[in-house]
Design a protein around this nucleic acid. Sequence first.
DNA 1: GTCTATAAAGGGATAGAC
DNA 2: GTCTATCCCTTTATAGAC
Lengths: 206, 206
Amino acid sequence: MTDTATPAPGSRAAKPLKILDAARELFLMDGFSATSMDAVAKVAGVSKATVYAHFSSKEELFAAMINAECGRTWPEITSAEIGQMAPIPKLKEVAERYVRFITGGYPVSLLRVVSAEAPRNPALGRIFYDNAPGAGRLKFAELLRHADAGGLLRVPDPLHAADTFFAMLRGDIHIRILVGMPLPSEAELTAHAREVVDRFLKAYRP
Amino acid sequence: MTDTATPAPGSRAAKPLKILDAARELFLMDGFSATSMDAVAKVAGVSKATVYAHFSSKEELFAAMINAECGRTWPEITSAEIGQMAPIPKLKEVAERYVRFITGGYPVSLLRVVSAEAPRNPALGRIFYDNAPGAGRLKFAELLRHADAGGLLRVPDPLHAADTFFAMLRGDIHIRILVGMPLPSEAELTAHAREVVDRFLKAYRP
DNA sequence: GTCTATAAAGGGATAGAC
DNA sequence: GTCTATCCCTTTATAGAC
């Protein structure tokens, strides 16, 4: 299974990776239909026949790209060092990280293309969901269960509370970014995250 | 200005409307790039040359369609009869309507195509935002200002609170639908709306 | 596996008749 | 305004040489 390791630049398996890189860049920027296999080949620095030697169709290349991106290790919104914090700083740190994460260009682009193709390829939507938002909510619900057990919060339905927490953090901002409106300033983002944590604590206070 | 009224089926201006109808159907289903002008002409029941006689390019037709859709009267989430209700039933009614609205196929499709084209056409994103989510939040913020004045809630930033309210209602559900996952049952939707209203009231209690 | 060259189909847009 | 027919380019995908 040496193929799964990152290959050296000159090695054989370097080309499929270059193709996937090019596919990511173009599909995420222009969407599925507006991206041509010619463009992918050009950006990858290979011939179009080589692209087809590794991915039998445009649909398959797109699916492979989405799978690869969803399989990535997403930034650890709820990481190990957070586990050691006290509950309230923990919430604040998660909020801060999540807001930064969802306003990043890359997750926005990924959501855009996945949602655009979802009517024709719901399987990819499911993969995206399970790996990105779905994974985060499960972890965070666990954190809320602990906060409940510790008596800090009263959370009868941790999964729904996790959804509410992240939804509040996305707020209006996420939709605005999705439709191409300008990003709020860093200060506004921080203020937003803090306000949301305060409201969330109040809403789930015992 | 007789052109602005709905023309009779046989009249001259009926064709531009048929073209716009076809454009809406196809663009919302397949996205901008995957929709061909041939298909629009076919669905509209006219020749392609006629399409170009009214809309000088594919981009212009798309923009005209988005403009027309955003200019529509959106369902009155905050309508006149709601204005007569007591504050809490008012919130519940708005919540119920909003959840039904955003889970409808049509608003989801519109958001999908607008967000997909937003990187290349931010002006359309702005039009969409100002007419749909943007208009709703302004109205609802007004409602919250009244609730604050009446002493029911304590809302220092009504606009942010309105964003929070709608974001909580979108919750995880909106993302799931965007990426093509199945809709929750009617009962789940109702339970969700009620839970959110309760949490919101608690979070903004004086 | 990788290339160049090309097939076969479909795309946006227009000319010219009525 | 509306049609038919067509131009010209791009697209996906493959054939065949190395």
